[in-house]
Write a protein that binds this DNA or RNA. Structure first.
Lengths: 220, 220
DNA sequence: TAGATTGTTAATCGATTAACAATC
DNA sequence: TAGATTGTTAATCGATTAACAATC
């Protein structure tokens, strides 16, 4: 199979973030249609040059660029190409630690039920939750995590929606059991070995940022 | 009162995002202690130069920079200074639209109960939820939003945790009623007038990004 | 073929880092 | 005073934009 990256150049996080936004832009369009970088730029509030530059970092399964000169990008090809780059064309197994808080909400999100991400386990410390089901998945006690990881399918991503105070301990346990990537909602920097990836979402922080911008709009 | 911004220079979103992280770093430290940019950088995985540069964009209430040459930054002064820059030293009123999904979870988050953000209303379309309480706040029907906005306190931020399909309509209604800023969890670009600020959180997108990085780690 | 739009190179812009004089 | 660390300027690095030759 042809590699999706043209060369050994590192792709910047900015580019990857925009790829996910390109998917959002494309998902409502007819797969057979062509869309120009100009049209996409218009819809997304970006420049056409940036979109073309971003996409030029990769090559399609068919060997060359995603676009067709004079026509634009075919929605189907671009969409599935980006899915492949992101690795979301295949199923990725997820566990959620912390069923009470955000965890439960995430499980209920239709987006999270999409084919590419498959929640295979939910854990919590609260005894009264253990045994109950959320969206068809039984909540297990946190102490079972290690056993679970050793006996079940590969876990690709662990989502941490636990209180700040226990996040580091739980992460450490999971890493010992072989988990290599985390989506962390606890507002602290997890200390992890360098072969482990952590992506942080600080909801309260986002709210604080927005609070700054709302005061500044139209001030300049 | 002395302005917190030294001049008319625009502050970049990157800087503001880091300010919220500086708060996380500081909140566990003794207010009377001093911390150097070097120490902060170490804890956060940044460079000391960047922290000093970021902070040099602003001046404290006492007229000059936040730091003391030879000593560092006093935790108390820096923390409350950043709070003031972000406008989170005062109470900001929030409404949440969409009680079922993320909305309920956010309400339950202890972080969101902090003094600076005060949830004054929760709305949903589902009749069976209307009238119930989440965290002491009565859920109202979406159709009451306009009336609510006209009769209640000023609403500083609206959090949208509604399905993609209705997000734009609801946002438009809210804007007509005077809401000027949104934290939007629906995965689409809201069309808003230029005096309205929108901050987007795409949780599924974040998961997709992480999925890319987990495959790439240690590859270079 | 003529028109349109990509892929790519070069120019610009902005953000990070390094270095150091100012000063506590 | 000597040591430490800020605040700031200049140098570097990286990301965005502009421009255009390639080509469908």
């Amino acid at each position: 199979m042809i590699s999706l990256v043209t060369d050994k150049e590192k792709i910047s996080p900015r580019v990857i973030e925009r790829l996910t936004r390109y998917l959002r832009c494309l998902e409502n369009l007819s797969p057979d249609d062509y869309i120009s970088s100009e049209e996409m730029a218009e819809r997304m509030g970006l420049t056409a040059a940036q979109i073309r530059k971003d996409l030029s970092n990769f090559i399609s399964d068919f060997g060359e660029g995603f676009g067709v000169r004079g026509k634009g990008y075919q929605v189907r090809i671009l969409y599935s190409g980006i899915e492949k780059i992101l690795g979301v064309h295949k199923t990725n197994n997820i566990i959620i630690i912390g069923a009470g808080r955000l965890g439960g909400a995430l499980l209920a999100e239709p987006e999270f039920t999409k084919e590419s991400f498959n929640v295979i386990g939910v854990f919590d410390v609260a005894e009264y939750k253990v045994g109950k089901e959320v969206n068809g998945i039984k909540i297990r006690h946190t102490s079972e995590i290690e056993y679970f990881l050793n006996t079940k399918d590969r876990v690709d991503i662990a989502i941490l929606t636990v209180p700040k105070g226990v996040a580091q301990d739980i992460a450490t346990t999971l890493i010992k059991a072989g988990v290599k990537s985390f989506l962390n909602f606890a507002p602290l920097k997890l200390e992890v070995p360098e072969d482990v990836v952590v992506s942080n979402i600080d909801l309260y922080g986002k709210l604080q940022e927005l609070n700054y911008w709302k005061e500044k709009v139209n001030q300049w």
